[in-house]
Structure formats: structure tokens, C-alpha cells
Design a protein around this nucleic acid. Structure first.
Length: 816
RNA sequence: GCCGAAGUGGCGGAACUGGCAGACGCGCGCGACUCAAAAUCGCGUUCCUUCGGGAGUGUGGGUUCGAUUCCCACCUUCGGCACCA
């Protein structure tokens, strides 16, 4: 008896051999079509999660398949290494963020190797290496130079006790308190850096070049949230302008009050002494809420009258100015005109606070409207009424005519607004790439000269228990000389959002050791753009918009080329714990990939993750179902090693024909499924072929040429999903190393063809009979056979068929 | 709340453009092998049934000769909501 399948031995053996031979090193080769296959880089959290395997190993299988199909494939890997968790570890466990991060990198490298993926390790990049963030800083300087970076005041969640900015995850509970000291969180305005991503809003809405999932394109479209309307200037009684954006300029005559965001700069001036206390109490409460809470449509409307008034520019009406939390400073202008008759939220607000409701639009089918008795707003377009000289304007012209009217009178004009706002990149944290600017009393904001990059993070830092950024309290680092005038100056102590690092990592992979620039242009010209990008759909609106924005800015600076960085995108779902909940250490439902590999081997874990789930959906980890692929791999093992039952002189040509037919049908199916990221049917197809081979062996076919061909095809097709066992069996079968450099098996449509098909006979859409017929049967013949079916005839009875529907090669439906 | 996605046997899932629902597995049942068990192999396995058939893809309606697939409404679960990454 042959030796048994021992994954722990063969997997290590082949991983070492592949690495020694640099089998997966990708090099420029103008003679082969390139393929840049990118999977989202992992964060250095400490342990690879089974979810990483789910994202990466099917991607690896597809990358391997493309390679066998003749592409020059690059499949790189690296680490997203800056960020909050490293600082949390520093505070909680008294370990330096750098030490924590690089320890994790070492462990994760080991785990990534155990996948048996075709990583090109020579291209590894780590975003917290000075050689990496040197160029993150360089990109920042480019943004600054091209007027894409600017500073403005912006609020952060702030813990007054710890004296530090809090991330969303550090603010807990409905009462929004600091996770460390439980002090209620406040908003604090800080001067921070922004990127002008809104300059690119329109171009980011164009997906015409991209093979991306419709749902991601839709998510991004809604995130950008383009709307057309008018910008209108109202004035306070003191003459201060209040700009508003409205998508319904035609309802302007119905604006009976205004609402400002509590943070609006004019609130202070508008508030009358009598209203002062109430207004300030409201502002305090409102700013403590999240934008999500404030925008909620179903909550009770709250607000406070400022005591001030504005003038409606179209009819001169004096209207009260209120503040309310549902108006956000981050959307539009932070002020709205309220038209309660035609906007539901304004309507509810008006009814709550007993404000005037004046209908100015008569939608089709509505005879008349009374603001006193209306029970809900009517948002439909319609004929304008009560609208001065525009009264009577029909729905079709209302929008344009009002805009023209406003423009003529200089009180407004057509405008476009976006929900998207500029990208805030400042973080009041230590473990990030320092923003390379210096503040000088004489020269103001001075960029650090490119030749002085990188601005390195100091390592001799002190962690205060409060979590305050150590950069602020590191005088030797903070103090510097102004690059312009040489006088003493101070460094910016904020670091950059980690999304900045991950916006260009695919470029650093091109040439991670390149010192003359962010990337080597030779590598860029050959490999870019990324052909396929895989990762979680949770990145749809942030990372995936930021990286597109980044790419477009680089193109416009002449640093890169092409309009999009990643041409094809596919998303995998998430693997949940066995309890169906998201895996987390606190729930104790985390599946450790190391343990699974030790139990079953990497190939089985890979195959199970492909087989057990729809890749785009994911699902709960099932500890029993993996047995199916374990048995399958063992069956393949014995199939190749145990050639019992060979009867070369008594070959049944029917069995042989059936085996070859199955082989070629599976070649076609598996190729198609790998092309389309349908990994579960890749494995089920290979199982079917295995089952057929086992049956053929029982029929005495082992040793025959046809049998050998089928086994060879099976092993070649197993190379992408289960690379180690495929290599081992390939080697045992005496075939040349490496299976991973062999061409993908050829599909022969002639051999795959079925001789016979099952013709389904329906009566009134219900299946009544199945007839086996020759494959190429004509419609006429099929119809004849169906009508002759006795089983069907019983249901047709005496009635005359009203209609007979023939679906070629599939079914006949007799309608009576 | 808003935006997006998904609901199919006991379980994971399959079904290319509207055409045989349940491929391939897990589990379970029966059998073979075995002193026995495990492993392995074979057969069966949506539910109900008077064995003719009937019902069935989250729920309720609709379009169609025909709907898991298209349309409308609803329910449940999951992802995102700008400082977790």
C-alpha cells in the first residue's frame, strides 16, 4: 500500500522548494501579457484571521490559473502598519507601537507563507517603514504644491479629561463617553489638513472604464451624492448673507423659515439676548451627537428659535431663523431654507413648532391646498402658485425658470452640491506618517523640502496614560528650524490618516526598494494599471474612493498615467464565527487559521473556503463541512497512487468515452468558474471528475491513455486551488517540475459534447414526462415526441392543445 | 434613520440569458468490509400522500405557456455611514 497523504510534510517541502527557486518572482517580460493581481493588504493586527484566508486564497487560485493560462502574473503582498491599534497596544501593554507592529509583521509573514500562495515576497512593502512613508509624505507635498491640500477648522471628538482626540470606536454608549475615563465627550475645533477630493467629484462618478460590481458603483455614486439645484442668498435683517443650497428652487416662495446648523458661524450674531441661554444649551447637546443620530428621519424634531430673522429674497417676507441638529455643517452650506408645504422634514418641524405652512406648488391631480390643514408635505413637482410673477409656471419649466429669475435678480443661480466632502487627513496621533510641514512665525506654513524627507518619527517617546499624542510633548523633535528663513520653528505634530498610506501601496509594490522616487517608472509602465483587485465590500466608499482620487491627482501632476488605478474589482464576503456572529476575541468565536492548517493542511483549508461558501457572500464557519474536502483530497491521493484493477485489454469504449466527456466538460466549467470568481463550483466540478475517475477505475480503466489524460487534467486543474497536493502528485506521477509552470489543460468541445439529452415534457407548465433523445433533435421532432408521450397525454385528456412551446434542446410545454 | 446586499432541504450551497429546483458536499439512515470499532466503499435522503398525485426557493400580491430568476409591497439578517482598518 502506498504511503498516506500527509499534508504537513508535503506542504512544508514544496513551500521551501518554491521559495528557493523563486518560482513566484514576477519580472518584466515584454513578450508575455502582464497581469497585476492585487488583493487588499492586511492590517498588522497580530494574527491572520480565517477571513484573510477567505479573501486571499481564492484570489491566489485565480492568479495561478491566469499564470497557467500564459499571463505574466504579479501577486504581491505587504502590510498596512500605521494606525490606532498599535497605540492602544502601547497604552494597554506598555509596548512601543513600532515593536508591536513589527512583531506582528513577523508572525503574519509566517502565516501568509503557510497559505502556499504565490506571493512575490521580493515586492513586500510596509507602510510604517521610513522608506515607505518618505513617499507618503512626498505625495502630501505634491498635493500641497498643486493646491489640493489646505487647512481649515474642523471639529473632532475630544475627551477633556484625557486631553486627546477620540476615534469613533473610542467613544462608547448612547451617552457618548470616553472609553478610558468615561468622561462625556465634547467637540473641539482644531485646525486640520484636508484634500480637495470634491474637485474630482464629477470624474469619480464616471465608472465607464471599470469592470466593478454594480453595487460598489452604486454605493460610490450615492456616497458622492451629486444633486442639481440652486444656490440662493438670503440676508439677515442686519444684511449678513446666508447662503443656502436647494434642489427645489421652484418652492422658494414657500420658504417660511430658515434652519441653521447649530455650528453655523452666524448663529452667535443672530441670537437675541432673550434666546441666548436656550440656544447655547441646544448647541451643546446637538454637537455631542453623531451625524448619524442627527440625520435620522424618524426621530422627533428638535430645534430652537434664535430670535433673529432673515428676508426671503423673492417675496421680501421676514422669516424666523432657527437652529436644529438635523442640519449638518458638513453638508451643503450648513443652512437651509425650510419649505414645510413641500418637504416632509420641514413640515414636521413646522408642525412641531407651529410655524407657517404656505403651499406654492400644485401637483397634478390636486385641486387646492390649505397650509393650515395639510397633513403631510407634497414633494412632487407641479404648477407654481403663490409665487409672484412665476405663478402659473408648469412643472416642466419650474426649475429652470426659477433659476433664471434668481440669476437675473442676482440673488441666486444654478448650482451643484455633493454629499461628498473634502478628505480630512489630519490625525492627532503618534503612529502615523508625520505631515511634513513646519510652522514659522515669519514665513507661516512652510513645506519640508523634498530632500529633507522623510520626516522620521522619533522613537524615544513617552506614553502618557492619557493617550495624548507623544509628538506634541517631544520638544527636541517638535522644535526645528524654518527651512526658508532658518529661524526657530515648530513641526506639525499631526500625522496622516492611514487611508493615505493605503491609497498608493499598489505603486510601492512595483519597486519597494526604489530610492529615487515613489516607484520605478519602468515597473509602472509595464505593470500598471492593476488588472484585478480583490477585497471586502466594506471598503466601497472610503478606501476605494480615496485610491481612485489619488490616482487621478497623480495623473494630473504627471506622476502617473491612465484614468483609473484598478480595472476589475471583485468583493468577497465575510467569514463569521460558528455562532453566525462576527468573529471577535471578546466573543471567543475566532477561528485560528494556524489551528485549521495543523488539523487538515493548507490545501484542505483553501479548498474548503472555496467550496463551502459563495465567495461574494461568505458565511458562518462550519467545523464539520471541511470533512468533505479532506475526504476528497484523500480520494485523489489514492486515485493516483493506487492503480489497482487495471485491465488494459478489456477497456469498455463507452466508459472511456464518458470519462473523456466528463473531463472536457469539467475543463470548460472550471475555466469559466475561475474566470468568474465562482470558486465553490470549481471544487464541486473537480469532485465530480474525481468521482467519475474512481468509477472508471472500478470499471478497469486504470492505466489506459484516456485515464492518464483525465488524471493529468485533474491535477493541472487542482494546481490553482490546492497547489501542494497537486505538485506532489504531479511529481509522483513522474511529470516535470513544476506543475505551476505548466499550461492550463486544453478544452476540446468535440469530446465534451453529449450524445443524448433529456427532453422534458410539460403540460401547462408542470413536468409530466422525461424522454431521452439524440442531442441534435429538431424542434419539429421534439414536438412530435412530446405529443406522443403517454404520460403527458393523460393530462392533456380529450382537450385540443391550445399552444405547444418548444425550447430547443430542453423542453416542450403543451398548453391546453 | 439613510445607502447597499442577502434570504433555496436538518446544514453549507448549485441552478449560464425566464425553461427538469436541490448539482457537489456535510449530517442522517441502511448495507458491505471487520471479532468489534474507526477509516473506507455502495445505496438512499425536500415535505406530505389514499402511491394517482399534491405542495415547495423569507411573506403577500402581480406579469408569463412557464418565475429561485422579472415587477410591487412587506419581514428578517448582514455591510457601510467619513478618526477601526
Amino acid at each position: 500500500m502506498a504511503e498516506r497523504y500527509q499534508p504537513e510534510i508535503i506542504e512544508r517541502k514544496w513551500q521551501d522548494r518554491w521559495e528557493q527557486d523563486q518560482l513566484y518572482k514576477a519580472e518584466i517580460d515584454p513578450d508575455r501579457p502582464k497581469y497585476y493581481f492585487l488583493t487588499m493588504l492586511p492590517y498588522t493586527s497580530g494574527d491572520m484571521h480565517i477571513g484573510h484566508w477567505f479573501a486571499m486564497t481564492p484570489s491566489d487560485a485565480r492568479a495561478r490559473y491566469l499564470r497557467m493560462g500564459g499571463h505574466n502574473v504579479m501577486y504581491p503582498i505587504g502590510f498596512d502598519a500605521f494606525g490606532l491599534p498599535a497605540e492602544n497596544a502601547a497604552i494597554q501593554r506598555d509596548i512601543h507601537p513600532k515593536e508591536w507592529t513589527y512583531k506582528n509583521v513577523d508572525n503574519m509573514r509566517r502565516q501568509l507563507r503557510s497559505m502556499g500562495a504565490m506571493w512575490d515576497w521580493s515586492r513586500e512593502a510596509i507602510s510604517s517603514d521610513p522608506e515607505y512613508y518618505h513617499w507618503t509624505q512626498w505625495f502630501f507635498l505634491r498635493m500641497l504644491k498643486n493646491d489640493l491640500a489646505y487647512r481649515k477648522m474642523s471639529p473632532v471628538d475630544w475627551c477633556p479629561q484625557c486631553n486627546t482626540t477620540l476615534a469613533r470606536e473610542q467613544v462608547i454608549g448612547d451617552n457618548r463617553v470616553c472609553e478610558r475615563c468615561k468622561t462625556p465627550v465634547i467637540k473641539k475645533d482644531l485646525e486640520q489638513w484636508f484634500f480637495r477630493i470634491t474637485n474630482y467629484a464629477d470624474e469619480l462618478l464616471d465608472f465607464s472604464m471599470l469592470d466593478w460590481p454594480e453595487t460598489v458603483k452604486l454605493l460610490q455614486t450615492n456616497w458622492i451624492g451629486r444633486s442639481e439645484g440652486a444656490s440662493v442668498i438670503f440676508k439677515t435683517e442686519d444684511g449678513d448673507p446666508i447662503e443656502v443650497f436647494t434642489t427645489r428652487p421652484d418652492t422658494l416662495w414657500g420658504a417660511t423659515f430658515m434652519v441653521l446648523a447649530p455650528e453655523h458661524p452666524l448663529v452667535e450674531k443672530l441670537t437675541t439676548p432673550e434666546q441666548h441661554d436656550e440656544v447655547h444649551a441646544y448647541i451643546h447637546e446637538a454637537t455631542r451627537q453623531t451625524d448619524i443620530e442627527r440625520e435620522a428621519l424618524d426621530k422627533e424634531k428638535t430645534g430652537v428659535f434664535t430670535g433673529g430673522y432673515a428676508i426671503n429674497p423673492v417675496n421680501g417676507e421676514r422669516i424666523p431663523v432657527w437652529i436644529a441638529d438635523y442640519v449638518l455643517m458638513t453638508y451643503g452650506t450648513g443652512a437651509i431654507m425650510a419649505v414645510p408645504a413641500h418637504d416632509q422634514r420641514d413640515f414636521e418641524f413646522a408642525r412641531t413648532f407651529d410655524l407657517a405652512v404656505i403651499p406654492v406648488i400644485l401637483p397634478q391631480g390636486v385641486e387646492q391646498l390649505d397650509g393650515e390643514t395639510m397633513t403631510e408635505a407634497l414633494p412632487e413637482y407641479g404648477v407654481m402658485i403663490n409665487s409672484g410673477e412665476l405663478t402659473g409656471t408648469p412643472a416642466s419649466e419650474a426649475f429652470q425658470k426659477t433659476n433664471a429669475y434668481l440669476e437675473q435678480r442676482g440673488t441666486g443661480k444654478f448650482a451643484i452640491s455633493y454629499r461628498l466632502h473634502d478628505w480630512l487627513i489630519s490625525r492627532q496621533r503618534y503612529w502615523g506618517a508625520p505631515i511634513p510641514v513646519v510652522y514659522c512665525k515669519q514665513c507661516g506654513i512652510v513645506p519640508v523640502p523634498e530632500e529633507q524627507l522623510p520626516v522620521e518619527l522619533p522613537e524615544d517617546i513617552e506614553w502618557r496614560p492619557t493617550g495624548e499624542s507623544p509628538l506634541k510633548f517631544h520638544p527636541p523633535w517638535k522644535s526645528t528650524k524654518c527651512p526658508d528663513c532658518g529661524e526657530p520653528a515648530e513641526r506639525e505634530t499631526d500625522t496622516m490618516d492611514t487611508f493615505m498610506c493605503s491609497s498608493w501601496y499598489h505603486l510601492r509594490y512595483l519597486s519597494p526598494d526604489y530610492a529615487a522616487g515613489a516607484f520605478d517608472p519602468k515597473e509602472y509602465d509595464y505593470w500598471m494599471p492593476v488588472d484585478t483587485y480583490t477585497g471586502g465590500v466594506e471598503h466601497a466608499t472610503m478606501h476605494l474612493i480615496y485610491t481612485r482620487f489619488f490616482h487621478k491627482t497623480l495623473r494630473d501632476m504627471g506622476v502617473g498615467e491612465g484614468h483609473e488605478p484598478m480595472m476589475q474589482l471583485r468583493n468577497q464576503g465575510q467569514i463569521l464565527g460558528p455562532d453566525g456572529q462576527r468573529m471577535s476575541k471578546s466573543r471567543g468565536n475566532v477561528i485560528d487559521p494556524d489551528e485549521q492548517v495543523q488539523l487538515y493542511g493548507a490545501d484542505a483549508v483553501r479548498a474548503y473556503l472555496m467550496f463551502g461558501y459563495r465567495w461574494s457572500e461568505g458565511g458562518a464557519w462550519n467545523p464539520d463541512n471541511i470533512q468533505g474536502v479532506v475526504r476528497w483530497l484523500n480520494r485523489v491521493w489514492t486515485l493516483v497512487l493506487d492503480t489497482r484493477g487495471a485491465q488494459p485489454d478489456k477497456i469498455d469504449p463507452e466508459v472511456e468515452r464518458a470519462l473523456l466527456r466528463k473531463t472536457h466538460q469539467i475543463i470548460q466549467q472550471v475555466s469559466n468558474d475561475l474566470d468568474h470568481f465562482e470558486f465553490n463550483t470549481v471544487i464541486s466540478g473537480l469532485m465530480e471528475l474525481t468521482n467519475q475517475l474512481v468509477a472508471a477505475r472500478e470499471a478497469g480503466l486504470a492505466g489506459a491513455d484516456s485515464f492518464e489524460q483525465a488524471v493529468e487534467a485533474l491535477l493541472l486543474m487542482m494546481a490553482p486551488p490546492t497547489p501542494h497536493i497537486a505538485e506532489e502528485l504531479w511529481s509522483i506521477a513522474g511529470k516535470p517540475y513544476s506543475i505551476h509552470t505548466q499550461p492550463w489543460p486544453n478544452f476540446d468541445p468535440e469530446l465534451a459534447k453529449e450524445d443524448e439529452i433529456t427532453l422534458v415534457v410539460q403540460v401547462n407548465g408542470k413536468v409530466r414526462d422525461r424522454i431521452t433523445v439524440a442531442a441534435g433533435i429538431s424542434d419539429e421532432k421534439a414536438r412530435e415526441l412530446a405529443l406522443a408521450s403517454e404520460a403527458a397525454a393523460r393530462f392533456v385528456g380529450e382537450k385540443e392543445p391550445r399552444e405547444v412551446v418548444v425550447v430547443p434542446g430542453r423542453l416542450v410545454n403543451i398548453v391546453v
